[in-house]
Simulated scan of single mutants.
Amino acid sequence: MKKIRLIARLDIKGPNLIKGIQLEGLRVMGEPQEFARRYYEQGADELLYVDVVASLYGRNSLHDIIERAARDVFVPLTVTGGIRSVDDVRNILRAGADKIGINTAATKRPELIREVARKFGSQCMVLSIEAKRVAPGRWEVYTDNGRERTGLDVVEWAQRGVELGAGEILLTSVDREGTREGFDVELVAAVSKTVPVPVIASGGMGCVDDVATVVREGAADAVAMADILHYGRSSMVEIRAAARAAGLQVRTP
């Protein structure tokens, strides 16, 4: 049985950790490093940093935040948002990141996926997909925090991304993000069954039981969570215990 990874997601705007609903109406939660340290100490398997305004300004501004995190958080760090080139990837990796997620730039120039995978390895290249449901059983890829349409079909784009060298898919349901209604299990299953790489389910976790549901019914390999942790509705310790009680294989921190 595969080990399921429990990932704390930190959406960053400028110096602040923020949280929204459907990636809108962003509320400042506090200083990212405090939250990162807390989740690391609670046993998070990985931390996922998302620069939510990077695409608007054409740059990723997480360099300093990642440098600080890498000094006292010793789990893999994934960084996404505003990464547009091999040089951008190199800079973020040098700051201390282990993996890079690319969304907007990849939709505009898919060849970037291959370039990053060849230079740094597929395990470093995460294809970040923001998905909105457009019809029963169909989702469209969006960019710029769920604001811009691309016309790309999510399942087809995930397959193409993997063919180009992506080693992992970060799949965020814009419809569910911040709603506490549970993951879009149908979306996760649609992507998971068509790609041979790990799929991280993100967006909508409402309670500890949602982890087992998206793993069992959606075949997710990892779960990214934010709201449930930031608002203290549950801790990483409680979520891991619930996953284990549901019969999932999770790491013992």
Rank of each mutant, 00 (worst) to 15 (best):
M1I: 08
R5C: 04
L6Q: 07
L6E: 05
I7A: 02
K13P: 04
P15Y: 05
P15H: 06
L17C: 15
L17Y: 13
L17H: 10
I18G: 02
G20K: 07
G20E: 10
I21Y: 00
Q22V: 04
G25R: 13
L26S: 04
M29L: 12
P32G: 05
P32R: 05
Q33L: 14
E34K: 15
A36G: 10
Y40P: 01
Q42N: 07
Q42P: 09
Y49E: 00
V53R: 06
V53H: 06
R59F: 12
R59Q: 13
N60V: 06
S61A: 12
H63F: 13
A69G: 08
D72K: 14
V73K: 00
F74Q: 04
V75N: 02
P76I: 12
P76E: 11
L77T: 05
T80S: 15
G81K: 05
G81E: 01
R84L: 12
S85F: 09
V86L: 12
N91A: 04
N91Q: 09
N91E: 08
R94K: 14
A97Q: 00
A97W: 00
D98R: 02
K99Q: 11
I100E: 03
A105S: 13
A106E: 01
T107A: 03
E111R: 12
L112E: 03
K119L: 11
Q123H: 15
Q123G: 03
C124D: 00
V126W: 00
V126F: 02
I129N: 04
V134Q: 13
V134T: 15
E140I: 09
Y142Q: 05
N145P: 01
V154W: 05
V154D: 05
Q159K: 15
Q159Y: 11
Q159D: 04
E163L: 11
G165Q: 15
G165K: 09
G167M: 11
G167R: 03
I169P: 00
R176P: 07
R180M: 14
G182K: 09
G182T: 12
F183N: 01
F183Y: 10
D184P: 14
D184G: 08
E186S: 13
L187G: 14
A189S: 13
K193H: 14
K193R: 15
K193D: 08
T194W: 06
P196G: 01
P198G: 04
A201P: 12
A201V: 10
G206C: 09
D209L: 08
D210H: 08
V211T: 07
G218R: 09
A219R: 15
A220I: 01
A222K: 06
V223T: 06
D227M: 11
I228C: 01
I228T: 01
H230E: 00
S235I: 05
M236P: 00
M236D: 00
R240A: 11
R244M: 01
Q249K: 14
Q249R: 15
R251I: 05
